[in-house]
């Protein structure tokens, strides 16, 4: 029997949640035995070539590329998990959500103390397009499970992964749910 396949991605996040995944200490050896990593920054596989069992998403969507990655994860993964505050509720990047994007861009590119001369808001076609606000993942695609925390503790990630792999409901003891 082939091993369950996991894919991961960091969208508008800081990779902290990925770090927390690595923070499961020696359980990582067990994890490697249990699963196969597919598209993920962990193994640097860049495109989906097969269906996956579990997709772990860190970060919300702040630009259109995030949306496309998220949508392709939804398409290729049986179970999609929002990992961390940013994926769950936008997180730190979403602090800009009350401010019109035009003001944000102007503030960042035209009005900063370090800009001088003829400045423009970058508009190269290759650049991802910033969205009007930062969206939590589940406001774009259906998400099957949520692991809050900034980052979620390694124990929570471990509990979620093992539960999903064993096909049992999550046992969320009090110490596992934290939003900070």
């Amino acid at each position: 029997m082939s091993k369950p396949v996991i894919a991961t991605a960091s969208l508008a996040g800081c990779f902290g949640c990925h770090m927390s995944l690595l923070d499961i200490d020696d359980r990582i050896l067990k994890l490697i035995e249990l699963v196969e990593f597919h598209k993920s920054p962990i193994d640097d596989i860049k495109t989906f070539t097969k269906p996956c069992d579990i997709g772990l998403i860190e970060g919300g969507c702040c630009n259109h590329e995030n949306v496309e990655v998220l949508r392709s994860f939804r398409k290729h993964c049986k179970t999609l998990v929002a990992v961390g505050e940013c994926a769950v509720m936008g997180g730190l990047p979403a602090l800009r959500n009350g401010i019109p994007i035009k003001d944000c861009l102007e503030e960042a590119y035209l009005r900063t103390p370090t800009t001088e001369g003829n400045t423009v808001i970058p508009n190269d076609e290759e650049l991802p397009v910033i969205l009007d606000k930062v969206y939590p993942c589940h406001e774009i695609v259906k998400v099957d499970a949520f692991l809050p925390g900034c980052p979620p503790s390694a124990d929570l990630i471990w509990e979620a992964l093992t539960a999903l792999l064993e096909g049992r409901p999550l046992k969320l003891t009090y110490d596992l749910i934290k939003y900070d």
């Binding site: 496309e68 035009k102 861009l105 808001i121 508009n123 076609e125 910033i130 969205l131 009007d132």
Partner: peptide, 21 residues
């Protein structure tokens, strides 16, 4: 969702299929 920032940056709104992450 892309409209406002494209307008601010003066670039066309890409069609969703045009880009692949």
């Amino acid at each position: 969702a892309m409209e406002a920032s494209c307008r601010a940056a003066g670039r066309p709104i890409p069609s969703p299929e045009a880009h692949h992450g």
